[in-house]
Amino acid sequence: MDIFPVLLAANGLDTFVQTLIKALALGSLYALLALGFVLIYKATQTVNFAQGALALAGTWLLSMIFMDWEIPGRLIGGPGWIHWIIALVLASAATGVIGLVIERLTIRPMIGEPIFSMAVITLGLEVVIRVVAFDAVNTTPRVLGIPWGTETFQIGGAMVAWSYIAAIAMAAVAFMATWRFFKTRTGVAMRATAFDQEAALAQGISVGRIFAIAWAAGAALAAISGIFASMPPWGPAGMASRDGAFFAFRALPAVILGGLDSAIGALAGGLIIGFAEVFAGQYLASYTGVLGAGYQQVVPYVVMLIGLLVRPYGMFGTEEVRRV
């Protein structure tokens, strides 16, 4: 599964511009996925390994809502792309509800248990959701009906896919919203909970509610990033397919590099990993014989390992205070 065929543009500058936008787009995608991880980690101190499976579930939901049930089309008229955006919102909201249910049933009873136990619970959830979603996706990929499809436009001599622009815009919107959210009352409560759960409880913050909000937002973000990750240049021609469940694991290096509990870290880590992967794929292509086919997919992990050797808690992560 090589999703980044090497570009052959007319001259060096066009290749560079094209690579740059591609890297920015992949970086945004990783940042989106990373943001979902970070939101959940910030509230519950858990890495949610089920993000990938939730992303696949969200993609499937979008496909059902938009193509099969045609819910937006029945409600209002107007052009197709508005329907699609409404379907996107509905799908992410529905996935958010799944996140709420998961949190209530499996995460809430685990408060106070070792963090690793919680993380393994999400591994179990990953198995369950992935298998159900696989069965729903039903081996044949489902069409998503993305409005801009595979269309491209040109900047100078560089070919740019509209999906790249869409991913960058979506990441910008998501990070702006998160930034605004952390300034609100609930956002401050979430930051307080992340800092110290007991102190937050003592201040009258409902930690359970914060957990629920974080999981709903994390699951919704997983759905959105899953949908954007299955767009033409990345996914198999804009369809929901089984590979979607594993895409989130490729964003883990970004989360770790940036720091598990930092939204800024998610953005920085995502962009760095995206740039490293795309630029390595473009400019080291002549060494494929030595590095092996598909080497660019390993680049994120290598960057992550080097980054962790320098900063064990990521670039923006909070260092754990260790007491005797």
Binding site: V47, I115, F116, A119, F249, L252, P253, V255, I256, L260, L291, G292, A293, G294, Y295, Q297, V298, Y301, V302, M304, L305, L308, L309, P312, Y313, G314, E320
Partner: peptide, 28 residues
């Protein structure tokens, strides 16, 4: 040496990275 420096879930994800690097090495 790399694994001792990181702790907790960071270590878990570093070891997860090993799996993917190993799969790649098997292709090389």
């Amino acid at each position: 040496p790399a694994a001792v420096r990181v702790r907790g879930l960071y270590l878990g994800i570093v070891t997860l990275g090993l799996v993917f690097i190993g799969l790649h090495l098997s292709r090389v």
